[in-house]
Design a protein around this nucleic acid. Sequence first.
DNA 1: CGCAAAATTTAAAACGTTTGCATTTTCGCG
DNA 2: CGCGAAAATGCAAACGTTTTAAATTTTGCG
Lengths: 347, 347
Amino acid sequence: MTTRVITLKELAANLDLSITTVSRALAGHEQIALKTRERVARAARQAGYVPNTAARTLVSGRSGFVGLVLPIRGPNLVDSFLGEFVTGLGEGLVSHGADLILATAALGHSELSVLRHVVESGRADGVVVTRIAETDERLAYLNRRGFPFVAHGRLLDADFDYNWLDTDGAHAFGEAFDMLYDLGHRHFGLMTISEPMTFRHLRQDGLAAAIARRGDPSVRLDVVTAPRFDQEARIEAVNRMLQGPDRPTAVVALFDELALTVMEEAARAGLTVPRDLSVIGFDNIAASAYAPPGLTTFDASIRQCAREIADMLLTVVADRPATPLTRLVRPTLVARASHGPAPQTSN
Amino acid sequence: MTTRVITLKELAANLDLSITTVSRALAGHEQIALKTRERVARAARQAGYVPNTAARTLVSGRSGFVGLVLPIRGPNLVDSFLGEFVTGLGEGLVSHGADLILATAALGHSELSVLRHVVESGRADGVVVTRIAETDERLAYLNRRGFPFVAHGRLLDADFDYNWLDTDGAHAFGEAFDMLYDLGHRHFGLMTISEPMTFRHLRQDGLAAAIARRGDPSVRLDVVTAPRFDQEARIEAVNRMLQGPDRPTAVVALFDELALTVMEEAARAGLTVPRDLSVIGFDNIAASAYAPPGLTTFDASIRQCAREIADMLLTVVADRPATPLTRLVRPTLVARASHGPAPQTSN
DNA sequence: CGCAAAATTTAAAACGTTTGCATTTTCGCG
DNA sequence: CGCGAAAATGCAAACGTTTTAAATTTTGCG
């Protein structure tokens, strides 16, 4: 047992050919006689030959890997995003014969330093960057280095070009507003977060733009900010929005987790969704379907997006296109039961 | 811009030292003068030197990677498991300076062939295997090869030793039975799956053992099997269990997704949980907290388990212990509101 | 049958690192 | 001041592959 791994040299010796010929034959070079190519292929298959990745990477300069740095996350933070994203990336990569490297940022090291390490150790041919922050050192670094990457998300104002795929949160939040406005709502709440991520601006701006487009001065918008990862503070913030008689009749939350908290707290405060309060989220996480009465939200199809990101990245790695690849994906409304007409007793 | 990556040779030239000395200095060898070690370390840090992974792997035979093969999954299958598992693995690995490789099985290729490729290309020093099937070729292969691995889950009967970490589903299902029995239930239902995974046996056997331990001949158990990934067939199976007057008063489901379907279908059939029917799940996925009235289930702390698996695997890789590492983790009951006393009108 | 051209195969270098062994330098001591 | 041992450094091979340039064999044709 414990059969050793066979190398090209051994395979060549068995076939009474040179290493060069065997290597070329396996690569399918025309210059090797067809008969030889077939003979080599058969022997390789039969011997279960698999080329050594390290050796191949060393000489070719290509690792066949794409890197993703896992953001550091709190101890019991469940992240419905990661699983889907990674699955999608995997699907996109495998069709090109590439694989994924997941590098975790340790507690001491910044995400940037881990990224640098991945890039400069030559482990990956390209990287995917998620959760874009307002001033994101990672993109600046990658751009400076000229290293292939695709961002999932966008910067607000960049002084350089880069490849990105983003979910059109601005459009979705505009759509949410229009729908709620048409249902009679005039007093809106936006639950947002204090973390400096660009998507909070994009979504809020989309909402504001839709309000402006409507040109109705009676429309009001209350914006309440909560820290992203502190459940207690989040609840406190939500209650700040819901408390008092002069509360919004419709709350749009930056993402589903926030929206679910809004629904929970609304229920606790004796409000019935959607009769007393409409709630709309974003992301369509699994729990949104189960939380009564069913959260109306937008599906960003993370998995599909991730697959496209993988495709984009592999294109960038292979072709180094002169103009950046960009793609804005429109999320689809998932209309469940958490939104409805504005309450009659206008406040 | 686009600064090239610095190599050991360049670093050595800058320092007017040989490659050997620089390499040893960075590795902290005692035989290199302390003064030199410090000088080299400073220069390396300043130059941002990062050793090339491929070269290092090639010569040392260690890649510093751990592999995980992503199971092929259906198009819109949301898998709450993966994100947590990967996060936990990352946490466990990073403390040892290792990283994770995620290889996806393409549609044509079997999971085994991808695993073989990962192993034999030398990409990984060890692998993690999840979702153990009744006859699992992967474990047999890895064992045959003598390649380091840790299984998440167990075989039912293996003719070889291997390292594993498993969640004690048998214990949990026994605990569920005891709790329900003490609440007066005598007629039980078990929703299980048709997929040949070992955990379905372990859990069902745990339930059966608890029933046997109790020694009450009036206890009845209906077992209904559903295909794992076919939502329609699953609903049909659940209704088979719930239909008719002679239905169980308590249903234990193999995992939360099934339990949630039971709760949904129960509601649709006009049954109130837990008044008419107690339901208990397993896994504690996020949706279980939201699905009314809140699913009682068991938390397997996937993330923590994954972290331990990473630790175990790195130990195996480094020390090749003679006796296998095994660990049975007891899941904790998360008592929500989906279980209660048996209905008075016994059927 | 001879010779050029085409077809096929091969030798050797290179990728960047680690490491066994050899060499040089340093330093204490007589 | 010289010698020898200890300390410090360097040379060169090796890891398994790809690829450039060159060598060898075969083929075709007069």
